[in-house]
């Protein structure tokens, strides 16, 4: 059985997406949730690069991935800034403590 590069990348995409989603679902720690998000978005980035290759337009796929890196970094910065404030105000990073608002 031969492993082509696109196939390997596709497996990588699915692995990253699965790991990210699973991490988000099982974790109770805000920082770990941010890490889960990061892994999820890395999967999406790899998917964009792979799509560029499959479509025969590698440079467009890569430039989209670069843009996503920038946007994703900004989101992570905001998320971590929120985490700092959560730690200060709640005294914990446990996501279950973040349920003071009524349904």
């Amino acid at each position: 059985m031969s492993l082509s590069l696109p196939l390997l990348a596709a497996v990588g995409v699915l692995g990253l997406l699965g790991t990210g989603l699973l991490g988000l679902l099982v974790t109770r720690n805000l920082i770990k949730a941010v890490v889960g998000l990061q892994i999820l978005v890395k999967g999406a980035m790899l998917a964009l690069v792979l799509a560029g290759r499959l479509a025969g337009q590698i440079q467009i796929g890569q430039s989209m991935a670069l843009t996503v890196i920038v946007a994703d970094t900004i989101v992570s910065v905001v998320a971590l800034a929120l985490a700092v404030q959560v730690r200060r105000q709640f005294g914990t990073l446990d996501l279950q403590a973040l349920s003071t608002l009524r349904r």
Binding site: L17, G20, L21, L24, A33, L37, L40, V41, G43, A44, M45, A47, L48, L50, A51, G52, L54, A55, Q57, I60, G61, M64, V68, V75, V78, A79, L82
Partner: peptide, 21 residues
């Protein structure tokens, strides 16, 4: 933030699928 970020990752995957196709 968490819910929106997951949503926007889904959109990206959708974009990748459309682009690949």
């Amino acid at each position: 933030l968490v819910q929106s970020a997951v949503g926007s990752a889904f959109v990206l995957i959708g974009i990748a699928l459309v682009f690949a196709r």
